[in-house]
Every structure is written in C-alpha cells, then in structure tokens.
Design a protein around this nucleic acid. Structure first.
Length: 123
DNA sequence: CAAATGACGGGGT
DNA sequence: AACCCCGCCATTT
C-alpha cells in the first residue's frame, strides 16, 4: 500500500524531475542547483538518488546534471561516465579533464549564468 | 533504534 | 588542482 510518506517522496521526485527536464539542451546544471530549484535546498543527494532510479529508456535528460563545480559524478572508466560524456558531447557540451565549464555551459546557478549575461543564449 | 550508505557540497591542506 | 574530511539528509541495514 502507499503511505503518505511514499506520496511525499513521489512528489519530491516529480519536482526534481521537472527541473531536470527543464534544463535546456546544450546546458548543464548541478545536483545542488537542481535541488534548490526544486524547492529542496541542501538535498543534492536526493537528486542523485532520484536520477539513479530512472528507468533505462527514460526521456529525462539526466546527463545534464553534474556535481558541484561541473565535475562528472561517475567514477573514471565507468559506463555511466562514458554515456554521460557522449550525450553531452552530442549536444555540444565538452568536458575538460572530466569537468564542464559551468561559466560557459552552466544553467540555473542562481546568480551564475555568466554566459546568459554575455551572449543572451536562451535559458 | 544506532550505524552505514551514497549520481552531494564546501572548506581546509 | 588534487585530496581528505566532515556536514547534510533520506533510506536501508
């Protein structure tokens, strides 16, 4: 049966997935930023947990979410790591030494988005 | 109910 | 910049 706690958890998951789905193609955000924008400050770990629970064929752009500082969260050599880098590369986001330049490709970072200020790229 | 876990974050070295 | 350590929080042991 479904307890009220499960419902609450499902609601948080939806809020998180909504934010992730709103990250524009070619841009990336971080676990912490997603959590904040989902109304769940300080729950970056929950974002990771929710994304980890996504079914294989999900349409949610989980690859646009990286760790703080633009770091790729998956361990070097892992399949998930390669998959994420490939997907990002496919939309024009390149990683240098396992990191994404958030000043350039980042999205949502509160006062961040240097790129949006400079080039008014959509977002 | 205490301890461990983890697609995390931030600060110190 | 790489690392380590500790804080955070929902879940699971």
């Amino acid at each position: 049966m479904r307890s009220s706690l499960d419902d609450a958890a499902a609601a948080r998951a939806r809020a998180i997935l909504d934010v992730v789905a709103s990250i524009p193609r070619g841009r990336v955000s971080t676990y912490g930023v997603v959590a904040e924008r989902a109304g769940l400050p300080r729950q970056a770990r929950l974002v990771g947990r929710v994304l980890g629970g996504l079914p294989a064929g999900s349409r949610v752009p989980w690859h646009r979410v990286v760790a703080a500082g633009g770091r790729i969260a998956f361990p070097a050599g892992s399949d998930a790591r390669a998959e994420q880098l490939a997907r990002l590369e496919a939309e024009g986001v390149t990683a240098r030494r396992g990191r994404i330049d958030l000043d350039r490709d980042g999205w949502g970072g509160g006062s961040g988005d240097l790129d949006r200020r400079l080039w008014a790229r959509e977002g």
